[in-house]
Design a binder for these strands. Sequence first.
RNA 1: GGAGAGAUGGCAGAGUGGCCGAAUGCGCCCGCUUGCUAAGCGGGUGGAGGGCAACCUCCCCCGGGUUCGAAUCCCGGUCUCUCCGCCA
Length: 423
Amino acid sequence: MLDLKFVRANPELVKAGALKKRIACEVDRVLELDLEVRQLKTESETKKAEQNRATKEIPALTGEAKAAAIQAMKQLGVEQKALDQQVREKEAELRELLLRIPNPPGEEVPDGADDTENVELRREGEPTVFDFEPKDHIELGQLHDMFDFERATRIAGSRTYFLKNAGALLELSVLRLALDHMTAKGYAPMLVPNLVRREAMEGTAYFPGGEDQAYCTERDELYLIGTAEVPLTSFHAGEILELADLPKKVCGWSNCFRREAGAAGRDTRGLYRIHQFQKIEQVIVCEADEEVSKAFHAEILRNSEEVLQMLELPYRVVNVCSGDLGSGQIQKFDIETWMPSRGNWGETHSASRFHEFQARRLNLRYRDAEGKVRFCHTLNNTVIASPRVLIPLLENHQRADGSIYLPKALRPYLGGRELLEPR
RNA sequence: GGAGAGAUGGCAGAGUGGCCGAAUGCGCCCGCUUGCUAAGCGGGUGGAGGGCAACCUCCCCCGGGUUCGAAUCCCGGUCUCUCCGCCA
């Protein structure tokens, strides 16, 4: 959420930002409501002040004077409550609209409509060259008896899967590798609630707008998270942290649930786009300083790159264009890993910085060096998401005989094995 | 799921209709004092909004209500604790 004062002072900038992001919102209506609310509040507060004054005098009065005063206040109270009612209604409408105004994108964000206009920043490694006909991860999975899609579909519907045997172990191994990597860097490991309240979804800016993507348990009004970012960023919501406590660096392991509404027919085969997966997510809460924020953005990007390097996978980093940014994101770098079966780079990581956008919604604050209370900055990035990452892992490391080369870093998690042999 | 108790400032803990934005203690900050780790004395010490200066308004878990007036009474919600039931 943007600061209303900021919107008030920079309406054109805010509108331009929304335009760049291709997100519709009602800036003018917000300003109009803002004005109305302030006027109504001033009126209401004037009456309230008068009441407060009278309230102090009434106990001293007696007889006629007292009765008259009470009568007058009764009348004033009615008027004041009517004003308050209006204020409440207007404020609710204002908030609803304000929540939908996007954070203007940063200067370094390329303009573009969708992911086809993202800009490649650099490549680390090149597409794998095979001297044999490579198999896709589904075939490899069959060969190794690692997945079962048919039975999963029967039991749980589309976009579901079982991981079994080496597939199950592989997932746990990459997750643990990623978690250990982050822990060694001083990020606090967290196991998080996978089911959260609406406020957490709203606070992290998934709602309003993203309701279609989240599973909702209607009876209990709880939502299944699509990422550990939601509980992790919400962790200190409502608190005022001390500067000395910042930055907060954490990494959380969670299951992630996504309805994939609107993606019907896209990526229906295999492990790419599924309803449930596991992910290690890194989150940083830091002071409200753009340079600090940017430095941490680079840090969380580097952390994830290191994981891919340990997995010996080719990848590239793209600067996500304005139209492909979420409403709260100032800037986002995606990491795309080479996926031979797609003949293309596929998104495996997404590193975002938000400035105060989430913190303001979450009321996540800190006391700066001058003792002033300010909203924190927040950032997050995938460390690893599985089973999607198994696609490049299996496909890039396959050998002509169908065996899978295991990167050195991964071996300790798989009993020292260097190779997965077909069963 | 059933029965009961409770939620007050960084913490502890008063307050049951006006004198309470809130006693007291601890903690913290500033100053003074004292020759020595410590103590004493004085002052200060939450957040939000509006004019943005004096000032005004709001916040005693959250949201409504009663009342001239609510931390205090009523209703709804959330959370915590105790007992019973169930359970990985």
